[in-house]
Design a protein around this nucleic acid. Structure first.
Length: 558
RNA sequence: UGCCCGAUAGUAUAAAGGUAGUACGACAGAUUUUGAUUCUGUUUGUCGAGGUUCGAAUCCUCGUCGGGCAACCA
């Protein structure tokens, strides 16, 4: 992956660390890991972490494990495990190994015993409230309690009993004996094992005690010989603890490095809030195309390529950030522009009759991938006397800069003829019902001998051949840039117009064979993909992202 | 009023004591059988005050501002 043509490419801080460790001989090779807790679906923020961890390993010839941090049985489910594995693979990465912290429960238990034997851990009978109050606050030191001085033998006995299941949840915990006066809250004798008589998604009912994050994560890293354990900023204050356990347990010295998590405008990244949106029906599901989840983005039509590209461009640093969603959309369009099949779909049909065109069907040839130029595959589209164009592409009294159809004005119909509007037909209420136009036979696309010049080109479908489709038009989920930072409930800022369903759109006939793995550009409108709700009777497309609309901008300016 | 992170255009991200650059956005223009794409140009920045130095975004000091830390969550 190294850039050969840019030897002076600047490195991000993680790449610098890795290069230094490789150069100094500290590591011969690197091993990273992506460590999700299977308690929810992955989102675009996780994609940044995945790309970072896998990307770093790929760049320096190392490997990456996918390891589930499954130490809290009450929150974790195999449904989440499966979705996470699928999402990582969809993004284009292959874990060297798929592992689980729960695989190490026995070993972790032995680590705890070792700590007790060294006089560095003790069983505490205090209640959760007592422990909290004894812990002090960030500005006041904590204080030791009477259990802190239990003998090694007694601690060993008690810890064994905790495992055996004779105590109930909350009766006892195992704590590391460090420093109740530490300015770092995490060093004030952190709890490392608690009793939870719960069913675990993998170990079933084998265990009554489970290790806490701080006594599982670093240890798992060490067991796997992870060289660079990359996590988000909020774990910085855990690092002294991470290192303390490695030192006292005398195990492989994995090292932790922290980066700033991704924040994106007009959405939220909290798993808890995302779960709330699903549970309270603000969205249909975890993979609702409005969700920032990987599965939502996938269903929306995002490509793995565009997401990987995006994470490359945003870089990685330790400062908080809020990235403009327009950058994500730029990366998406960049990819789709190259790879989406062009199609014609009329969203809001207006009938036109070509009065001088015979009652016949003529097949027009058009390119599937205009960006590919001559190499593009081609397809044929039926053209006939009665067509539909977009309502918004006609104006009876157009402003000067309107390049589309108007009485007496002419435009080209994409890949077909130039037409001129002769007559506007209205109903009793004065609504425009159809347009009568004439076409110029000499102007046929590909061998235009008319010499006519037009300012606009419109998309169209043939009335007799068009097929009805449903379009789901998605917009941003929130009305404000940073919902998480607003006053009050984040749900008050949900965009009520985040989904608009169009049931009267008409598509060119080739779309009857739309495929799930294909991306489309409905010309002059937006990129779309087939939705999984589609059936034989109803073809449904999701709008992935709109095309940039220079005209809309012009209109807005007035 | 403890400890720990951090601060470069609107948003991100480079510059490792020596010309503040790049991308996205915005704006203007060219091209265009998609008002798309492409291309060209313009715009805007080192949190503040001191210090070290021939020279500071970079090193030091003191501030200011933002974030994190007091789950038997991860």
């Amino acid at each position: 992956m190294a850039e050969s043509n840019a030897e002076a490419r600047s490195l991000n801080f993680l790449e610098e660390i890795v290069e230094e460790d490789l150069k100094s001989g500290k590591n011969k090779t690197i091993l990273t890991r992506f460590p999700p807790e299977p308690n929810g679906y992955l989102h675009i923020g996780h994609a940044k972490s995945i790309c970072l961890n896998f990307g770093l390993a790929l760049e320096y010839g190392g490997k990456t494990n996918l390891r589930f941090d499954d130490t809290n049985p009450v929150k974790e489910e195999t449904e989440y495990v499966e979705s996470i594995i699928e999402d990582v693979k969809w993004l284009g990465f292959n874990p060297d190994k798929i592992l689980y912290a729960s695989d190490y429960f026995e070993q972790l238990y032995e680590f705890a015993v070792k700590l007790i034997k060294k006089g560095l851990a003790y069983v505490d009978d205090s209640s959760s409230e007592e422990i909290a109050s004894q812990k002090g606050t960030p500005t006041e030191p904590g204080e030791a309690n009477k259990y802190r001085n239990r003998s090694v033998e007694e601690n060993l006995q008690l810890f064994r009993e905790m495992r055996s299941g004779i105590y109930e949840d909350g009766e006892k915990v195992l704590r590391a004996k460090i420093d109740m006066g530490s300015p770092n809250m995490h060093m004030r004798d952190p709890i490392i094992y608690r009793i939870k008589k719960a069913h675990h998604h993998r170990t079933g009912n084998d265990w009554f005690i489970y290790p806490m994050y701080d006594f599982a994560h670093g240890q798992s890293d060490s067991i796997e010989h992870i060289t660079h354990s990359i996590c988000t900023l909020e774990f910085i204050s855990h690092r002294p603890l991470y290192d303390w356990f490695i030192e006292k347990l005398e195990i492989f010295p994995s090292r932790q490095y922290e980066f700033a998590r991704l924040n994106l405008t007009f959405t939220i990244m909290s798993k808890r809030k995302l779960l709330q949106l699903v549970n309270e029906k603000y969205v249909d599901s975890w993979d609702d195309p409005r969700m920032p989840t990987i599965s939502g983005l996938r269903r929306r039509g995002y490509t793995p390529e565009s997401i990987r590209n995006f994470t490359d461009r945003i870089g990685v640093q330790k400062r908080d950030n809020l990235i403009d969603v327009s950058l994500l959309e730029f990366c998406l369009r960049e990819d789709l522009n190259k790879n989406a099949l062009r199609k014609m779909v009329v969203f809001d049909p207006l009938k036109i009759v070509i009065t001088n065109y015979p009652e016949q069907v003529e097949m027009m040839t058009t390119e599937d991938y205009p960006e590919a130029g001559e190499k593009s595959s081609k397809r044929e589209i039926p053209f006939s006397r009665e067509l539909y164009i977009e309502k918004e592409d006609f104006m009876e009294n157009p402003p000067k800069k309107f390049f589309r159809l108007a009485p007496g004005k002419s435009v080209r119909l994409k890949s077909a003829y130039i037409i001129q509007c002769e007559q506007v037909i209205k109903d009793n209420q004065g609504n425009i019902t159809e347009l009568h136009c004439i076409y110029f036979p000499e102007s046929k696309s590909g061998n235009d001998a008319s010499g006519l010049k037009v300012q606009g080109t419109l998309h169209w479908v043939s009335k007799a051949h068009a097929i009805p489709v449903e379009l789901r038009l998605y917009d941003r989920l929130f009305k404000v840039e940073n919902p998480a930072m607003e006053e009050g409930d984040f749900k008050d800022y949900i965009n009520p117009d985040s989904l608009e369903i169009n049931r009267h759109a008409l598509a060119e006939p080739s779309l009857a064979n739309a495929k799930f793995n294909e991306r489309y550009q409905f010309m002059r409108k937006a990129y779309f993909c087939l939705d999984k709700d589609s059936s034989e009777e109803k073809i449904i497309f999701n709008r992935t992202v709109s095309l940039k609309d220079g005209w809309a901008k012009e209109v807005k300016k007035g």
